[in-house]
Structure formats: C-alpha cells, structure tokens
Amino acid sequence: MSFRYEIRLSGAGGQGLILVGKIIAEAAAIYDDKNATQSQSYGPEARGGASRSEVIISDGDIDYPKATDIDLLLAMTQEAADKYAGEVKSGGIIVADSDFVKSPPEGDFAVHCLPITQIAEEKVGKKITANLVALGMIHKLSGVISEESVINAIRARVPRGTEEVNIQAFKYGQDLVD
C-alpha cells in the first residue's frame, strides 16, 4: 500500500481555501516531486456558501481524488467543523479557527483551535491572509511537505507583489503551533 495523505480544507467561499489547496498540491507534486491532486466543491455563489478543497498527497498513483479517510481537516467555520469532524481518521488532526469555531469538535483526533483570522488581522495586518496563516499551521502539523517547497509554491501562486506578506502570514501560522 503506498503512502496516501488526505487534507480537507473547509469553510466559506471567499476564505481562499481553494488557493491553499493549490499551494499544498503544487508544493508536494512539483517541488517535492511526490504525486498530488487538488479538487474542490463549492456552491453556485461567488462568495459565501460552503466551500471545500481537498488535497491528496501520495508517492503512488492517485485514482480517487477525493478524501475518504481524512488525515488533516481545516475548519474555518463552525458549520464545516460540525459537518466534517466525523470523517477525520482516528489519530488525525483538526485545525480550526477559534474566531469562528466556538465549540471545537471532540473525538479521537488532535484539535488545534486557534485564532487564525485574528492573527492575520493583528499581526500580519491583513485579514485576507488568514488562509496563509492556516497553511503555516497545516505545514507544521502534517509534516508531509517541505518548508522550502511550500514557500516556492506560495511565490508561484499568490498575486504578484503580495509574496512577502503571504509568506509572513505563513510563518505566523507555523509559530502558532510551536
């Protein structure tokens, strides 16, 4: 059985979860030379509504590109936390934003419920970088992608001119789980 790591990024449309999924997948597949897929599901709305992005990282072929047994769940809303915690595997990890997730899920997994959006707002000075703060936490907690690869992927994927602020947000995220 080849190595397979499943990440689900869930929250609301507009929180940048699909971008984070693309960064993780690109870091793993292009810069770390593993295999990865990123898929998404979202509603017809441009903003708001439930949004979900999934990344599968493997050293073999990836047939089914959706998460079936989640290793790491990011929940950026209470609704997402409630809906998906049950799909996290035993011994898995949940990263949640305490600004939105007031009652963190309980179960056979490690929960890191921390003020992600608040850090983005107060330390980075840009609430919109909350997704990159979450990425920093995911990077640190999952241990499946190298830091250098994530930073390369951030530089390749975020809008030009915002690289440094996004990398800063990513680093605040890493520090949050130290």
Binding site: A25, A36, T37
Partner: peptide
C-alpha cells in the same frame, strides 16, 4: 466536473 477541475501533476 472532477476531471475538469481536479489539479494533477
């Protein structure tokens, strides 16, 4: 939609 939207290497 999955084939259209999935990102793969």
């Amino acid at each position: 939609e999955i084939v259209g939207h999935v990102h793969e290497k």
